[in-house]
Amino acid sequence: MKTKMNRLLTFICILTAFISLLLIGCNNNDIPFDSNNLLKGVWAKAKHNGETITFKRVKSLPEKEYGVAFNDANIFIQKTSGFCGTPPLTFYDDKGTYNADKVLIKVQLDNFSGNFNWEIVSLTEKELVVKTALTEREKEHQELLKMYSIFHTIATSKTCENSNDWTYTNYGSKACGGPQGYIAYSKKIDVSGFLKKVENYTKAEDVYNKKWGIVSTCDIPPKPTNIECDNGVAVLKY
């Protein structure tokens, strides 16, 4: 009786292990090689070199490292630990869709408010090299950063020795309304030219917010009461 029971338990264990292997095999993101569509497949062993990422074709997505899969029906999967991962890293599948031609891969993730584009640098049977291609929104955001940097550089170009020589203005446009904040500037600079740059930035940010549906808090930044010089730097006081 014990022998029969032991045999039954052994059979159940073997059957369970076999079914588990089948389930793993059905869920390991294997994608058959397609010579007519070299992009389709699984890519991992990513190496970053400046702006480019080099992937190697693999059989299935790794469990504990970054990898991507371009499936049939334009399904995209990336094995990732997220953008803010710190050791020990936990990797998971982030899914979405993609569209691609010979030059550009456009990815839209299901759980990410936006998308990203990759420019194909080279693509062979065994290797995929891509570099980030900025989206229209990202390009416009970079332009905003440049505009901000220009007037911020002007505002901080003078040494603060006498606070009476300084004043301030509001800048930017929050999505919920009102300015982003205030910035101090010297009265000894080209004030009209400086204020025009601040105004242009504020208008551009308002257009950007409305175009892309940007969301922000609705709190109103406090207005400064005065300016003090601290080691040559103008400091706003509230």
Score class of each variant (00 low, 15 high):
Phe112Pro: 05
Ser113Cys: 11
Ser113Arg: 12
Gly114Cys: 08
Phe116Glu: 02
Phe116Trp: 12
Trp118Lys: 10
Trp118Pro: 07
Ile120Ser: 00
Ile120Arg: 03
Val121Tyr: 11
Ser122Thr: 15
Ser122Lys: 13
Thr124Trp: 09
Thr124Asp: 07
Glu125Ala: 11
Glu127Thr: 15
Thr132Tyr: 10
Ala133Met: 08
Arg137Trp: 00
Lys139Cys: 12
Lys139Met: 09
Tyr148Asp: 06
Ser149Gln: 14
Ser149Tyr: 10
Ile150Trp: 09
His152Ala: 15
Ala155Cys: 13
Ser157Ala: 04
Ser157Val: 09
Lys158Trp: 08
Lys158Gln: 15
Thr159Asn: 15
Thr159Asp: 15
Glu161Gln: 10
Asn162Pro: 00
Asn164Ile: 08
Asn164Gly: 05
Thr167His: 00
Tyr168Lys: 03
Asn170Pro: 08
Asn170Lys: 15
Gly172Glu: 06
Lys174Trp: 00
Ala175Glu: 00
Ala175Phe: 02
Cys176Leu: 01
Gln180Cys: 13
Gln180Lys: 13
Ile183Asn: 04
Tyr185Leu: 01
Ser186Phe: 04
Ser186Asp: 02
Lys187Val: 04
Lys187Met: 05
Lys188Thr: 01
Ile189Gly: 09
Asp190Tyr: 01
Val191Tyr: 07
Ser192Cys: 05
Gly193Phe: 05
Phe194Cys: 06
Phe194Glu: 06
Val198Met: 11
Glu199Cys: 10
Asn200Cys: 11
Tyr201Ser: 03
Thr202Asp: 13
Lys203Ser: 11
Ala204Leu: 10
Ala204Gln: 12
Glu205Met: 15
Glu205Ala: 07
Asp206Arg: 02
Val207Glu: 14
Tyr208Ile: 07
Asn209Val: 01
Asn209Lys: 03
Asn209Leu: 00
Lys211Ser: 06
Lys211Tyr: 12
Trp212Gly: 01
Trp212Val: 02
Trp212Leu: 01
Ile214Ser: 08
Val215Leu: 11
Val215Lys: 15
Ser216Val: 02
Ser216Thr: 14
Thr217Gln: 10
Cys218Met: 04
Pro222Glu: 15
Pro224Lys: 05
Pro224Met: 02
Asn226Thr: 11
Ile227Asn: 08
Cys229Arg: 09
Asn231Lys: 15
Asn231Pro: 07
Gly232Leu: 11
